[in-house]
């Protein structure tokens, strides 16, 4: 079974991805987060040895090389990497603290780039691999209060396109998914009125769900994704249509 590393796999979108991939029977999934949530522990029990948890604070980028190695040593070659862990600190730029800005860019940009480096080089040596980066529609639209977050998500799409060019000839695909607003802990600060406004602006008059993103990840990792690379796939119930 192919090993898939899913960062931020303890809740929200990452947990939905980990669950779906483990349930498919095709993958052995390693979910990464700082702590194992109750939900993830339950999913691991249910998945019967296809789903595992590994603790890692990805913001501590110096520890990433050793972490990537430990996962390989334990589980073997990594076929798929899903860079999903992220934070969504909001606030007006003018009043955001510099340390908040740095923390956001660190976890959302620096961490996935460095983790990808240490995973992709072995994919290169193996001549096979799939990388999926979770961006956001905010990378290409605009939302007041999310300028730094949006910058981090736009960085992810730029990274995706150029890396796809770099590693394409050794058989690795690299894509990004841009979800619209999804109800998770990350978005819990948005009130009902804001939620209704986003729903009303979406073509399908509803919000996408975490599992919709998980389906897209499953597609990109599977046979259907073999000729898709360097692109950004939007999952937003038509919010940006």
């Amino acid at each position: 079974m192919r090993n898939i590393l899913v960062t931020g796999g303890s809740r929200g979108i990452g947990l939905a991805i980990a669950r779906r991939l483990a349930a498919s029977g095709d993958y052995n999934v390693v979910a990464v987060a700082r702590r194992e949530s109750g939900e993830l522990a339950a999913a691991i029990r249910e998945a019967q040895r296809c789903l595992h948890f590994r603790a890692c604070d990805l913001a501590a980028t110096d520890a990433i090389p050793a972490f990537a190695k430990s996962v390989r040593d334990k589980f073997g070659a990594i076929y798929g990497l899903v860079n999903n862990a992220g934070i969504g600190t909001d606030g007006l730029l003018a009043t955001m603290s510099n340390s908040q800005i740095e923390a956001l860019i660190r976890l959302n940009v620096l961490s996935p780039i460095i983790l990808t480096k240490y995973v992709a080089r072995h994919m290169m040596a193996d001549g096979v691999g799939r990388i999926v980066n979770i961006s956001s529609i905010v990378a290409s639209t605009g939302y007041s209060g999310l300028s730094v977050y949006a910058a981090s998500k736009a960085a992810v799409t730029g990274f995706t396109r150029s890396l796809a060019r770099e590693v394409g000839k050794v058989g690795i695909t690299v894509n990004a998914i841009a979800p619209g607003f999804i109800d998770t802990e990350l978005t819990s600060s948005l009130d009902d009125q804001g939620r209704r406004r986003i729903t009303g602006r979406s073509a399908l008059r509803r919000l996408p769900e975490a599992d919709d993103v998980a389906s897209m990840v499953e597609y990109l990792l599977g046979e259907g994704g073999r000729n898709i690379t360097g692109t950004v796939l939007t999952v937003d119930a038509g919010n940006t249509a």
């Binding site: 080089r121 290169m124 040596a125 590693v167």
Partner: peptide, 18 residues
Amino acid sequence: SLALAILVARLEDELGID
């Protein structure tokens, strides 16, 4: 440069160092 990157990755696997 790509072939060199592959070499460094393979050697890391084999020798345990980069």
